Computed example of a mutant assay.
Amino acid sequence: MPPTDRRSTLRTAAAGLLTAVTAGCSPATPPAPKAPPATGGLRARPAQITHGPRDRPHVALTFHGGGDPATARALLETAERHGARLTVLAVGTWLDENPGIARRILDAGHELGNHTQRHLDINAMPEAEAHAEITECADRLRRLTGSIGTCFRPSRATRASPLVETLARRAGYPLVLSYDVDSLDFTAPGAAAVARTVLGEVRAGSVVSLHFGYADTVAALPAVLEELDRRGLRAVTTTELLS
Rank of each mutant, 00 (worst) to 15 (best):
L144C: 07
I105P: 02
V91A: 05
L106W: 10
W94P: 02
I105T: 09
A130P: 04
L141N: 00
L75P: 02
A90K: 07
P154H: 00
L144T: 01
A124Q: 11
G83T: 07
L120R: 11
R156W: 10
R73E: 13
I105D: 07
V88H: 08
I122W: 07
T150S: 09
A72V: 10
R143A: 14
T158S: 03
T78P: 01
S161D: 04
I134D: 06
E136C: 04
G113N: 06
W94Q: 12
P162I: 09
E133C: 12
L75N: 05
R143L: 11
G113S: 04
R118I: 04
H119T: 03
L112D: 05
E111D: 13
E77T: 14
T78I: 15
G149E: 12
T78C: 06
L163F: 00
I105Y: 04
R153V: 01
A124R: 14
V91K: 02
R153N: 03
C137S: 08
V91R: 04
L120T: 06
E80F: 00
P69I: 15
S161V: 02
E136F: 04
R118L: 12
A124H: 06
A157F: 02
E80C: 00
A130I: 08
I148V: 12
M125Y: 12
I101D: 10
H119I: 08
N98E: 13
G92A: 09
N123Q: 07
A138M: 14
Q117H: 04
S155I: 03
